[in-house]
Design a protein around this nucleic acid. Structure first.
Length: 213
DNA sequence: ACGAAGATCGACT
DNA sequence: GTCGATCTTCGTA
């Protein structure tokens, strides 16, 4: 009986993807951002499960990074960035779009990875319903606000523990990784805008903006 | 209280 | 590629 149970556990682990644990997130933000490429973001709700491969991500390293929301210190909105790693920092942008970030590093260091694009993987039909798009449309998940809509991520997920069962990352493989400056952070000044802190999978059609350098 | 700015999106040319 | 919508957040008074 014990032997049989053990073998079943092994089979289960081999047949299902491995959920990433705190050790993945509690590392320098640039490391986490680069390694996020190819990993699978999963969201489970009452409507069902949706999941996609991460194909574009950016590192934000406040308070010194002027492009980061945390550069002026903690505010009610940015509190989650200053909290423990392995949690979600979700914020509303331009009044209508939610953006999803992963808090990294260690508590007190306001570092986070913005997820900018996904390649749809599971629950594609649900994504098309939420987005009002065709199943193969690039527009399904090729932007920070689009992917949160497709996966049903909102302010209700603020500070959610990514080691739980609702919102988490699974292991996955990446193709060739490209690197460039971040998107739409020019107001932060050229010094910070020029940092090559954006990572993406080369040649993937879901990457939001073609590299400028 | 007020006002300016914003890690975007979708429609349109 | 350009452009306007839209509304929360936060700094300043």
């Amino acid at each position: 009986m014990p032997a049989r149970t053990d073998s079943l556990v092994v089979v289960t682990e081999l047949s299902s993807a491995k959920k990433l644990t705190l050790e993945f997130y509690a590392r320098p933000v640039l490391t986490v951002a680069q390694e996020c490429i190819g990993k699978v973001l999963v969201h489970r709700t009452a409507e069902g499960e949706t999941a996609g491969r991460i194909v574009e991500a950016e590192a934000y390293r406040g308070p010194e990074d002027r492009a980061a929301h945390s550069w002026r210190g903690m505010t009610p909105r940015t509190a989650a960035m200053f909290g423990p790693p392995g949690r979600a920092y979700v914020y509303l942008l331009y009044g209508v779009n939610w953006a999803f970030n992963i808090v990294t590093s260690s508590e007190g260091q306001p570092h986070a990875v913005l997820i900018r694009a996904l390649e749809p993987l599971r629950g594609v039909e649900l994504m098309t319903q939420r987005r009002g798009q065709r199943a193969m449309a690039r527009e399904l998940t090729n932007g920070p606000g689009k992917l949160t809509q497709a996966l049903g991520i909102t302010g209700a997920d603020y500070a959610r523990d990514l080691c739980g069962d609702e919102l988490f990352l699974e292991d996955g493989l990446a193709g060739r990784i490209g690197r460039s400056r971040r998107i739409n952070v020019e107001p932060a000044g050229e010094v910070w805008a020029a940092r090559p802190w954006r990572f993406y999978e080369r040649g993937n059609r879901y990457v939001s903006v073609l590299p400028r350098d």
